[in-house]
């Protein structure tokens, strides 16, 4: 197990270097100057301009900036004067806001995590639930309905769904009920709602496509498992259908679903640009998107590094839990494709 994890981390390093290198290279050809953007159309004195460029290292060649950046990611610092220290990664200072990027992530990441876990909850309850119903009642009207509705969910543009939900639950519902029943449609807190109520629409929107996938995987896995020998044996033993379903079928059928949901969590934790934008949710996806529009390089680089790191960790956890769920898989000996 230890060797496996070490190898996965070793594999991650070239991918990380590749992505960040491409990112840095793109910024050299990306038109626009973060310092000029900060001033907008108002005049900026040459002295101020020069001072700002220097403060953010923008006057150095891009490869020097890249090396500096990699150095700043290291959690360990060494200098002859103060010796070895462990201050943790330093992602630099935002050019647009003049604040530490770490502090900005500390503010935004909890919101992304909150939204991700809420969406995953929707995915688990509804996705798995619908999948089970569709499989148990295969060929019934419920199955057709589930298949069709999951196909439709997959085909919905997320922002469109988000906007439509805002219109339905925020505006129309309020009009129909004379202002008694409706949902908050934007932001993360504030009267007249409790904080968690702000989560409902963004979580449903973010979960929509993944819930459809989860349902489809659940259904197909149950159908596949249902035809296997051990299930037939269990049925032949005279176990009730529900005992077979919960005692035997679910155990194996759940593995791919859990894998999917785990990986999905990783993706959601790395920020949902469209959902966060539509619902004005103060998460990291929104923050990185805004940073691109301002050429706020420290925020873009820090954000992408954070995303890569989260995806790595979550994928690793999923793989490890996979080994626990399915004893046939031995991580140490598994050959990577």
């Amino acid at each position: 197990m230890g060797r496996y994890i070490a190898r996965r981390i070793a594999q991650f390093i070239p991918v990380f270097l590749g992505v960040t290198l491409i990112l840095f290279f793109i910024t050299t050809v990306l038109p626009g100057d973060p310092v000029a953007v900060r001033a907008g159309t108002k005049p900026l004195s040459p002295a101020v301009y020069k001072s700002l460029r220097h403060a953010y290292g923008l006057d150095k060649p891009w490869y020097v900036q890249y090396v500096d950046y990699l150095g700043s990611l290291s959690p360990v610092r060494y200098s002859p004067k103060s010796g070895l220290r462990f201050p943790g990664p330093d992602l630099g200072v935002s050019i647009s806001y003049g604040r530490p990027v770490i502090a900005m992530f500390e503010e935004t990441f909890p919101y992304t995590a909150e939204l991700a876990f809420a969406a995953i909850a929707v995915e688990i309850v509804i996705g798995i639930g619908v999948g089970i119903v569709a499989a148990v009642k295969q060929f019934s009207i419920w199955d057709t309905f589930a298949t069709l509705s999951t196909s439709i969910l997959v085909a919905l543009p997320v922002f469109w769904l988000g906007v439509m939900l805002q219109y339905l639950f925020g505006i129309l519902l309020q009009q129909w009920t004379g202002g008694i029943f409706y949902l908050p449609i934007a932001g993360a807190s504030g009267p007249p709602f409790a904080d968690w109520q702000y989560l409902i629409l963004p979580a449903v929107t973010l979960a929509s496509v993944s819930t459809a996938y989860a349902a489809r995987i659940m259904r197909s896995q149950l159908l596949e498992v249902g035809g296997q020998d051990y299930v037939r044996t269990a049925q032949a033993k005279g176990l009730s259908p529900s005992a077979v379903l919960w005692g035997h079928e679910m155990k194996n059928a759940l593995i791919p679903v859990v894998t999917f949901i785990g990986l999905d969590l990783g993706a959601m934790l790395s920020g949902a640009i469209l959902t966060e934008t539509v619902f004005n949710w103060p998460g990291i996806g929104n923050m990185i998107y805004q940073a691109i529009g301002r050429r706020d390089y420290p925020v873009i680089f820090g954000g992408v590094s954070l995303i890569l790191f989260i995806v790595l960790v979550v994928n690793l956890l999923v793989d490890i839990s996979y080994a626990f769920l399915d004893p046939r898989i031995r991580l140490g000996s598994k050959v990577e494709g």
Binding site: V158, S208, Y213, F260, L263, G266, A267, G271, A272, L274
Partner: peptide, 12 residues
Amino acid sequence: MSDDIRASEVLQ
């Protein structure tokens, strides 16, 4: 696409 397909990207 977006946030929402990333999961399936990773999976598949």
